[in-house]
Every structure is written in structure tokens, then in C-alpha cells.
């Protein structure tokens, strides 16, 4: 059997993702959880690179780390500048969360079991063509044009809504 480094790097990324995800849900300090989530998102981006989906990996980092996570932290710091931000978890929440997590796990396992495509995938070392061009074609010139436009309108509505909520009332 030929020895390659690829599995090691893959398991490195997988371990990084899972371990940091565990930290996210177990740690009590909300800011630590957010920074741990950053490591998780990076790990997932690394796994995308392994699937030769580099565009997706960069998008993952730019949207989740550079955008959403920053906004989460921003919200936390705006609401409380104190260092001690503890999360209190009650038993009822724990139960509900467990049920939801189990349901999600079942759903994902069903999808994985019923998707035949991935079983036929073999790593024969060939490099797949870059995905950027295909994604662009599909979104802007193909079957996903309408959903893409609908999503952008949805985002615009959300943007206007946010501006409306946050603006000051002008009384005269």
C-alpha cells in the first residue's frame, strides 16, 4: 500500500472541525464559543478544498468568518462589554436541543444513505476542473437564475427592514 499524506491532512481538518464544534457547544463563555466557531468554519473550508471546491471554500470564509461571525461578536460586545458573559442552560432547553439535534442527525443520515452519487466517487488523483466558471454559468446563465434573483430581492428587503428598524424617529 502506498503511503500518502492526504489522509493525514484530511483527518487533521476533520478533527479540527469536530473538536472546535464540540468546544462551541460546551464552553460557557459566549465569546470563546464564537472564536471557536471560527476554527470550525475554517475546518469546513479546508474540507471544501479537499473536495476541490475552492470557490466554495473561499466563499465560506468570506461570508461566515468575515461577515456573520463578525456580526455575532459585534452584537455580543454592543450588548455587554463585560468579560464575563456566561450562558445559563436550563434542563428544558437541553432536552429540546437534544431532540432537535437528534432529528437533524437522522435527516442527514437519511440523505447520506439515499444519495448514491458519493459512493461512486474514487480518488484517483486527477484534478477536477475549477468550479468557479461552472457556478457562474449555473447561477447567472442557467437554471438557478430565478432563485438567485429571488434571494437577492429577499436580501434587499431584509436590508431595508434593518434600516427602517434602526433609524431614529424624527419628530417635528
Amino acid at each position: 500500500m502506498e503511503f500518502t499524506l492526504k489522509p493525514f491532512i484530511f483527518y487533521g481538518f476533520a478533527l479540527m472541525t469536530i473538536a472546535s464544534a464540540l468546544v462551541v457547544v460546551t464552553v460557557r463563555n459566549i465569546v470563546h464559543a464564537a472564536f471557536s466557531l471560527m476554527v470550525t468554519l475554517f475546518g469546513v473550508a479546508g474540507l471544501y478544498v479537499f473536495l476541490q471546491a475552492d470557490f466554495l471554500a473561499a466563499t465560506q470564509v468570506i461570508v461566515y468568518v468575515g461577515g456573520i461571525l463578525v456580526l455575532i461578536l459585534f452584537g455580543v460586545m454592543m450588548t455587554s462589554g463585560r468579560l464575563e458573559m456566561r450562558i445559563h442552560i436550563e434542563r428544558g432547553q437541553l432536552l429540546l436541543g437534544g431532540v432537535v439535534a437528534l432529528a437533524l442527525l437522522m435527516l442527514l443520515l437519511t440523505v447520506i444513505a439515499n444519495t448514491p452519487a458519493w459512493k461512486n466517487l474514487t480518488d484517483d488523483g486527477t484534478e477536477l476542473p475549477p468550479t468557479t466558471e461552472r457556478i457562474g454559468e449555473l447561477i447567472l446563465n442557467g437554471p438557478f437564475l430565478l432563485p438567485f434573483e429571488v434571494v437577492s430581492v429577499l436580501l434587499l428587503v431584509a436590508l431595508i427592514g434593518a434600516a427602517l428598524i434602526s433609524r431614529k424617529e424624527v419628530r417635528d
Partner: peptide
């Protein structure tokens, strides 16, 4: 990289 400039944007947003 085939995503060169996009990679730069992603990394610098971190």
C-alpha cells in the same frame, strides 16, 4: 490559484 483575488479577499476579511 484559480481563485486568486477571491482568496485574498477571504483571507483579509479574517
Amino acid at each position: 490559484f484559480n481563485i486568486g483575488i477571491f482568496y485574498i479577499m477571504a483571507i483579509s476579511s479574517v
